[in-house]
Design a protein around this nucleic acid. Sequence first.
DNA 1: TCAATCATAAACCAAACGGTTGAATATCCA
DNA 2: TGGATATTCAACCGTTTGGTTTATGATTGA
Lengths: 115, 115
Amino acid sequence: MYGAMTERIDQVFAALSDGTRRQILTMLLEDDMAVTDVAEPFEMSLAAISKHLMLLSKAGLISQEKRGRVKWCKLEPEAMRDAIVWIESFGQLEALNFDAFEAYLDRELGQTDTN
Amino acid sequence: MYGAMTERIDQVFAALSDGTRRQILTMLLEDDMAVTDVAEPFEMSLAAISKHLMLLSKAGLISQEKRGRVKWCKLEPEAMRDAIVWIESFGQLEALNFDAFEAYLDRELGQTDTN
DNA sequence: TCAATCATAAACCAAACGGTTGAATATCCA
DNA sequence: TGGATATTCAACCGTTTGGTTTATGATTGA
């Protein structure tokens, strides 16, 4: 079985792996937008953008609320949190530099198998 | 056409969107590993792991060097840089809070369409 | 009421993903 | 030389992705 958090991180990274979707998220930083307005700058059918928005929605990165015939898209940046935590933790572990750290431990603890 | 940097970011995020691959990257934090050793903890064929490693390699997140019959996998964390920059820039823009910022500008610049 | 607008659904397509199994290749070592 | 080991290749499978076009449903407003 695959953890719920892990699955969410999968979805968020997958959502971010497409330039169109990243651009949509950037647009939504400024303001909530209707689907038609989101689609306007792209050379792509409305249906295609609608699919991208559904994928972003499933990943939790946006929410959509229908008022009348207009569906408003709102950024939900909190959904990025776990993915950011993963990537930052990774960076910190990497910065730790295991080789140097282990060499340090070897010296400090006076291990015998240090050569 | 799609920019080279953008394409690389696509690949990195796509590579990170799979739990198996994230786990592999974490394993490689500690040390370089042979393909067989990478595969060991997973309930998956060696061929499947080999494919994951090729994908990570194409994304630039690891490099592979064959010495004798063993192919060594080495983490290349620099490949994550642009993706991290994107996600961090996004976070900073988000923290900026456009609504508040624009309201501030409206006040400071004495625009007439403020209501 | 009727036409226009907003958005999704449905059906289709090609390509990529994530996995399998079995064969092939390359290298090591006894 | 020949067997064991390390890895990939090739073919296959079902699902997902990213796009299309056409049809449909819901809502608005003159």
